[in-house]
Each structure stands twice: as C-alpha cells, then as structure tokens.
Amino acid sequence: MSSVTDFLLNRASEPRLEAPAPDAATLDRAFACASRAPDHALLRPWRYLVIEGDGLKALGELLAAGYSDMRGKTDEKKLEIIRNKAQRSPMIIVGIASPKKHHKVPEVEQILSAGAGMGFLGLALQDAGYGVMWRSGELSHYPMVHKGLGLVEGESVTGFLYTGTVSSTKPAVPRPALAEFVARWPA
C-alpha cells in the first residue's frame, strides 16, 4: 500500500493541543487540499472560518450565548464550561456547508462534499505535523451560533476543527473489525 494508506491507518484525533497553530502557508496548503473534495458540478458548497487569538474568547462567548438562548439556562458553571470549549486549542477552523440550488446536485451531496473537505483539511494539517480534533455537537446547530458566525439561510456548520501542536499523545483507540461494518451484497 502507499504512504497515503499508511498515514490514514495511523490517523488519530488529538484532544490535547497547544501553540503554535499552523502558519499561513500551512493553512493555505491545507485549504487547497480541502478544495479537492469530491464536488459534483464544481459548486464549491463549502467555506471556512479561521478563529484564533481574541477570536477564540469571542467564540466561547457566542457558544455560551447560543446555549442560554436554546436551553434557557443560565447556570454560570455550565456556561463557563461552554466558554472554555473554545480555549482547547490555539486555532479553531469552522467548516460551513453552503449548498447551492442546482437541478442535478441534491443538497445532501453538497453537504457530504463539505464534510469530505473538512476531512481533507484535517488530514492535510496532520500531514504538516499538527494535531486536529473535529468536534461538532448540539452547539453547532444553534441558530444564535449560526447568526454570530455569519451563516446565511441554508448553511450549516459541518464542525469545529481544533488544531495546534500536540501537547501529549493519547493511547491508540481500538478500531472495529472490518466484518463489523463491511458486507458483500448480494449475500
């Protein structure tokens, strides 16, 4: 198998990240890789926001406000936990699915393309020596969070890609046996 296959077989999410984050040239190359995601009709149904520095604090505040808006809860301890989510790495890249109306390409294909782009982006950053952790969760679906991030109607968050330098590695995650998720059809 090729070095790409070996790389994929050793890929892992890294939750412990610190500075430095990827530099501009590394980001440009990683976004160029993301743009190679399968994209029926070349609609480019994705975009990205790079958040770092003071923007991380602002993102934490936005996430906490979105939580309060949706849940009606103002438990300060819970809100502080949510605010701190944005401080887990020196950079967060927000992936946004931005489907276009098209007579041949359904919205679901475009959202899958945006997801593939996030995956390619993460792989490119890892290949450049950085750690990544792709997170989503309920906060990524809150209307106030969408509005605060500048999403327009029809757009959605494909995830928050935390990135930076790995501060400590975690144990390998056991992978399922292929027979658990692969079958031949017809049987």
Rank of each mutant, 00 (worst) to 15 (best):
P38V: 12
P186E: 09
D28V: 02
M133K: 08
S136F: 02
F160S: 01
S2H: 08
E80R: 12
E61C: 02
K78C: 03
L79G: 05
G72E: 00
A65H: 08
Y67L: 01
R44M: 15
P106M: 05
L125I: 02
G131H: 04
L161P: 06
D6P: 00
V94A: 02
L121V: 01
G129F: 02
A97D: 14
Q87L: 11
S156C: 10
V50E: 15
R83F: 04
D54T: 15
V108A: 12
P22I: 03
K147A: 15
A114V: 04
V173L: 15
A25F: 07
S98Y: 01
Q87S: 09
M118S: 09
V157G: 03
H141G: 07
A19Y: 08
A21F: 04
H40E: 01
A179I: 04
V94Y: 07
A21Y: 00
R44H: 14
G164Q: 04
L123G: 06
G137L: 09
H103C: 00
E153F: 10
T169S: 10
M70C: 00
T74K: 11
K85Y: 06
G119D: 06
L9D: 06
V182Q: 09
D69M: 04
A179W: 02
C33M: 13
H102A: 03
P106W: 07
L112P: 00
G60V: 10
S156P: 06
D39E: 14
W185F: 13
K147M: 11
K57M: 05
P174C: 01
L125S: 04
G164N: 04
M91T: 05
I81N: 13
R71W: 05
A179D: 12
L49K: 13
V50N: 06
H103M: 02
L123M: 13
R44L: 12
S168C: 05
P99R: 10
V166L: 07
E18D: 09
L59Y: 04
L59G: 03
T165M: 04
G115M: 09
F120Y: 15
